[in-house]
């Protein structure tokens, strides 16, 4: 009767997963009638026509393929056949580079804008116009000026993750409680020390929230960006497997993108908890 909520929720999750996998399995079972045709023609038509097998893989196919990938995550058989670990590694490295650059620009700039009403007002129209631009719209401009597809992808990540961080930093810094600032003022604390000992800790939860939104957006955008620039990365892998008509691999990639995205979010959530203070 008194099973903990967590346990019950876990059970429901497992039931839902089993139901989903079961329906998926039933829906992709071979049901179509097998037609007889000449072997030459059958080769052209593929398995769907000859054996009545659905082109959509079932959970068992995906599971078997996933196990294969997990056994050899880092193999490298040339440009079109690399292990999933390598592809994810490229994507994470690009997101990491673009995101870190954005942190280095957004947080100091956000501090300046947040502390200066003049800058805040002066830069506002620029930020308002630049913020809603889809990061992929920058891609042609980046490719033309940077002339390197990989660096262009990093630039796209930079430009998409800078806005939530910048706006949250500005908001966090500008809305630090007046009384905390007054405490620092009555103690004759200088501007730099005040920024680090009062404003930064007070604004940290808001800044971290912006950083968490940014990492989510960056991970969303990297897939699309890599589909465009090609070469390496999980986004390229998805598009390449689509061209290979390997729906199994596409499904595996989708699953992994979701898991990595969740892990990135969890890491930032943990940092946010570390700087949050109860009032």
């Amino acid at each position: 009767m008194t099973t903990p909520l967590r346990l019950r929720a876990g059970l429901v999750s497992l039931v839902l997963l089993a139901a989903f996998l079961g329906i998926w399995h039933l829906a992709t079972r071979s049901t179509a009638p097998v037609t007889t045709m000449s072997p030459e023609y059958a080769k052209l038509m593929g398995l769907t026509a000859t054996q009545g097998k659905s082109a959509m893989p079932g959970p068992l196919d995906v599971g078997a393929k996933l196990w294969e990938h997990l056994k050899r995550p880092f193999y490298d058989n040339g440009p079109n056949d690399k292990g999933l670990g390598i592809q994810l590694g490229y994507s994470i490295a690009r997101v990491g580079a673009g995101y870190l650059l954005a942190v280095l620009v957004a947080i100091p700039l956000g501090f300046l804008i947040g502390m200066s009403p003049l800058l805040s007002k002066a830069l506002d129209p620029f930020i308002q116009v630049l913020k809603p631009i889809s990061p992929l719209a920058w891609m042609p401009l980046a490719l033309y000026t940077i002339k390197d597809s990989s660096v262009s992808a990093i630039f796209v990540i930079f430009i998409c993750s800078i806005w939530p961080m910048l706006l949250n930093t500005v908001f966090g810094v500008a809305s630090v409680r007046k009384e905390w600032i007054n405490v620092a003022r009555t103690l004759e604390v200088g501007t730099v020390r005040r920024a680090f000992t009062v404003i930064l800790p007070a604004a940290a939860p808001t800044i971290l929230t912006g950083m968490r939104i940014s990492i989510g957006i960056a991970w969303l955008v990297i897939v699309a960006a890599e589909m465009l620039v090609g070469g390496t990365g999980i986004g390229y892998f998805v598009w390449n497997e689509w061209n290979n008509l390997s729906i199994t691999n596409v499904i595996i990639a989708i699953l992994l993108i979701g898991i990595v995205g969740m892990l990135l979010d969890q890491i930032l959530a943990r940092f946010t908890r570390m700087v949050t203070f109860p009032e």
Binding site: R177, E179, W180, N182, V183, V198, P201, A202, V275, F277, P278, E279
Partner: peptide
């Protein structure tokens, strides 16, 4: 200060 204004962190 009226609101004590302690730094909560």
């Amino acid at each position: 200060f009226q609101s004590h204004a302690l730094l909560p962190w």
